[in-house]
């Protein structure tokens, strides 16, 4: 229903808020839609939503399958409202990368040696490790930047990749983990 969509958060799998975002319940009320995070993003990762998103109109969103977040941390510096809090790369918790072991060609045994997600991860050997040559995400250090999703070669029938970022921290009281 159209009305339902006006109040429902657009954040889902692989569709994430920029780094340092406050609780998703607070996000639409705190953000003044000034678009400075969109403008400052050198990669064009952040896009503002349009009027179809109801009360979330104008809020920034990252579709990691299109362009992931490269964790340059420019957007958190410019946010004037504190909706994106000034945090560091390591503190970023946009979500958690989850490997679908049935879809992943390394895990399901179809072709044993793809490890793109491992190679592409900015925190290689910290946030993602190899367990007998198969990738394993370490949840404590994964920032949810979505580089692995962007790099993953497998696209499932439902449009998801074999590794997906789930925004599991979106509704937490504190977005900054590891404290």
């Amino acid at each position: 229903m159209a009305f339902e969509k006006t109040l429902k958060s657009p954040v889902t799998t692989n569709v994430l808020r920029p780094p340092g975002a406050v609780n998703e319940l607070l996000f639409p009320s705190k953000c003044i839609r000034c678009g400075r995070c969109v403008e400052v993003c050198p990669y064009g990762s952040i896009r503002p939503l349009d009027i179809h998103a109801g009360i979330f109109t104008g809020t920034p969103l990252i579709h990691v399958t299109d362009i992931p977040c490269y964790l340059c941390m420019k957007c958190v510096e410019v946010c004037p409202t504190g909706t994106l809090r000034p945090i560091t790369q390591q503190e970023t918790k946009m979500g958690l990368a989850v490997i679908n072991k049935h879809a992943c060609i390394t895990w399901n045994g179809e072709l044993a040696l793809c490890r793109t997600c491992y190679n592409i991860c900015p925190f290689k050997e910290t946030a993602i490790k190899l367990d007998e040559l198969r990738p394993v995400v370490i949840d404590k250090y994964c920032t949810g930047c979505g580089l692995c999703v962007h790099g993953c070669q497998v696209t499932q029938e439902n449009g998801k990749k074999a590794i997906n970022v789930e925004p599991i921290y979106a509704y937490r009281r504190r977005a900054i983990a590891n404290e």
Binding site: L26, S29, K30, C31, I32, R33, C34, G35, R36, E39, V40, V78, P80, T81
Partner: peptide
């Protein structure tokens, strides 16, 4: 950076008063 909702010139930041007050009141 930005426009008349929030404008920054160097480290001088401007925020439109109504937008700011609304943000404070709603959040």
């Amino acid at each position: 950076q930005g426009w008349f909702q929030s404008l920054s010139i160097g480290h001088l930041w401007f925020v439109s008063p109504l937008e700011g007050i609304e943000s404070i009141l709603t959040s």
